[in-house]
Simulated assay, not measured.
Amino acid sequence: MVKLVLMHKAESLYEDELDVAYDFPKQYLKAITQAVGDWIVYYEPVKAGPRGYFAVAKISRVIEKPDQAGRYLALIEADSYLSFDVEVPRLSEGVPLETALIDPSGMPKKGGLVQSAVRRLPEADFARIVNWGLPQDLERQEAIRYDPVQPELHDAPVLFERPVIERLTRRAYRDVAFRRKVREAYDFRCAMSGLQLRNGGGRPEVQTAHIRPVEHGGSDAVRNGLALSGTLHWMFDRGLISVAQDCETILVSQNKVPSDVVSRLLRPDGKLVKPADPRSAPHPANLRWHRENVFGQVIGDEPLNWG
């Protein structure tokens, strides 16, 4: 196995679904096949945008792309994709983070490998990039984000250095990273009520919901998330509300949710608030899964008391 950098351009002719599959030509088949079972880092080239290194994922297998001769898909392990909390720049103090892109003089190389859509990534480079994009202390950063002075944190504990892969696969860490990215994508605003509420300390009241739960094949990509108030999150998870095929009209289980509850909780136009960046908008396939598998089915034993 080998780790790779995979180049992604949003307007490319290749139909990447970054948390599902990476579309590539035959010339990279050998390299990507060798990476099956290992981790990759997604990279946005200079001419495509400012992001640099922006996400990590794991390749589960490679298949031929249906009806596309000479094209292949690297399928992404369902629960592996994770956006970086901080997008990682291409250069640090003028020097590439990938050692293979540094020429003998210590300056960035030009052309050739730099422009390759698939590059081998040594373990040390992988760890350096991931540690920058997904810091070791991300959970602690989030814990003190809106309450920096906590009694139990007066004597700051020594950070337990977890290996990179352990951190990438630990559910608690991934949940924090997912929550931070989704709430920021929606500017800390509930996607269904439109409200942007904060408590006295500035802590946002909005929560995050997986549209398709991880245990049912969903990913931790922002496009599989919604920022929702606590009540609407509860209703969404229990199938009382969903989103229509147009990806913006809010659906309500009318026989289970009283109309006055709808008028109090949802935006007057009944439309979803979407992120400013269209790349973060809910993916149609995830919304369809929720409509077909959750909407209309009350999940849980709690009595529906709307009083």
Rank of each mutant, 00 (worst) to 15 (best):
residue 236 F to W: 08
residue 305 N to C: 04
residue 273 V to W: 11
residue 251 L to Y: 09
residue 219 S to P: 13
residue 303 P to D: 07
residue 194 G to L: 01
residue 255 N to T: 14
residue 194 G to I: 00
residue 120 R to A: 10
residue 238 R to G: 10
residue 70 G to Q: 12
residue 199 N to R: 14
residue 160 F to M: 02
residue 3 K to N: 14
residue 300 G to W: 10
residue 260 D to S: 13
residue 284 P to D: 05
residue 196 Q to L: 01
residue 221 A to S: 15
residue 9 K to I: 07
residue 79 D to E: 15
residue 5 V to K: 07
residue 160 F to C: 00
residue 250 I to W: 11
residue 234 W to N: 04
residue 30 K to F: 04
residue 168 L to C: 10
residue 25 P to F: 03
residue 217 G to N: 05
residue 163 P to T: 06
residue 295 F to N: 01
residue 79 D to V: 06
residue 175 D to S: 12
residue 99 T to S: 15
residue 53 Y to N: 10
residue 304 L to D: 13
residue 30 K to Q: 13
residue 135 P to E: 03
residue 266 L to P: 12
residue 24 F to Y: 07
residue 54 F to V: 05
residue 291 R to D: 07
residue 161 E to A: 14
residue 70 G to F: 10
residue 241 I to Q: 02
residue 193 S to E: 02
residue 204 P to T: 09
residue 97 L to H: 11
residue 207 Q to P: 00
residue 249 T to I: 09
residue 97 L to V: 04
residue 287 L to M: 12
residue 278 P to C: 03
residue 26 K to V: 03
residue 93 E to T: 02
residue 16 D to G: 01
residue 136 Q to A: 12
residue 69 A to Y: 13
residue 186 Y to Q: 07
residue 19 D to L: 00
residue 67 D to W: 09
residue 79 D to C: 05
residue 13 L to D: 09
residue 218 G to Q: 09
residue 32 I to F: 11
residue 132 W to C: 06
residue 111 G to P: 09
residue 13 L to G: 01
residue 162 R to L: 14
residue 294 V to N: 04
residue 93 E to H: 14
residue 232 L to K: 04
residue 283 H to L: 04
residue 48 A to P: 12
residue 48 A to Q: 07
residue 211 I to D: 01
residue 68 Q to Y: 14
residue 22 Y to V: 01
residue 58 K to C: 14
residue 284 P to H: 09
residue 114 V to Q: 13
residue 246 D to R: 06
residue 193 S to I: 02
residue 151 P to A: 05
residue 11 E to C: 01
residue 162 R to H: 13
residue 129 I to S: 03
residue 270 G to Q: 11
residue 6 L to P: 01
residue 278 P to A: 05
residue 138 L to P: 10
residue 64 E to N: 13
residue 221 A to E: 08
residue 242 S to Q: 06
residue 105 S to K: 14
residue 153 L to N: 09
residue 260 D to C: 04
residue 49 G to S: 05
residue 182 V to A: 05
residue 193 S to Q: 07
residue 104 P to T: 02
residue 264 R to I: 00
residue 217 G to L: 00
residue 279 R to M: 03
residue 141 Q to I: 03
